[in-house]
């Protein structure tokens, strides 16, 4: 498995675990409140810090295991796979945001719009790494 594919797996796992943790907290807070919980700053900050630290640790470990590959720039095939993944993940984000926008005028719930937007960002990032892995494996 190439260094870039290993990185993509690591990032996808980190983002998935972080996203599940964050939305589990939001769900619990919403159940306790009896309505959609507003964005909770400490959780947002904790999520971002968690993702950043986990990414640095994962990249450092992977980089130490294969320093040459870690320093090498992406080759043409990898660049193409990254572009295609970025292209499709944009659709995931766009679709999520449009769903949120269509939902808002019906329910007038700004907190829900926020959470849908945040979830769309998370999902598009996860989709981007998942698609990279797919294209690295299947050839693009």
């Amino acid at each position: 498995m190439s260094f870039r594919e290993q990185s993509a797996w690591a990032m996808m796992a980190i983002l998935t675990v972080g996203g599940l943790w964050y939305f589990n907290k939001v769900r619990a807070a919403s159940v306790a409140l009896g309505e959609t919980a507003p964005p909770i700053m400490p959780f947002v900050i904790a999520y971002i810090v968690l993702i950043v630290i986990a990414s640095i640790v994962a990249m450092s470990v992977l980089g130490m295991a294969s320093p040459e590959a870690a320093n090498a720039p992406a080759d043409e095939r990898e660049r193409q796979a990254d572009s295609r993944a970025g292209d499709l993940s944009g659709y995931v984000l766009g679709a999520g945001v449009i769903i949120g926008l269509l939902h808002y005028p019906l329910h007038m719930d700004g907190n829900m719009l926020y959470h849908i937007g945040f979830a769309s960002l998370m999902l598009s990032q996860i989709a981007e790494y998942g698609l990279r892995i797919w294209y690295y494996r299947t050839g693009s």
Binding site: Q80, D82, S83, R84, G86, D87, S89, G90, L93, G94, V97, G117, S120, L121, S124, E128
Partner: peptide, 15 residues
């Protein structure tokens, strides 16, 4: 592909 890939970054920023 190149245009959409770059656009996804703009969209991310716009969100």
């Amino acid at each position: 592909m190149k245009s959409l890939s770059a656009t996804s970054h703009v969209l991310s920023l716009g969100v």
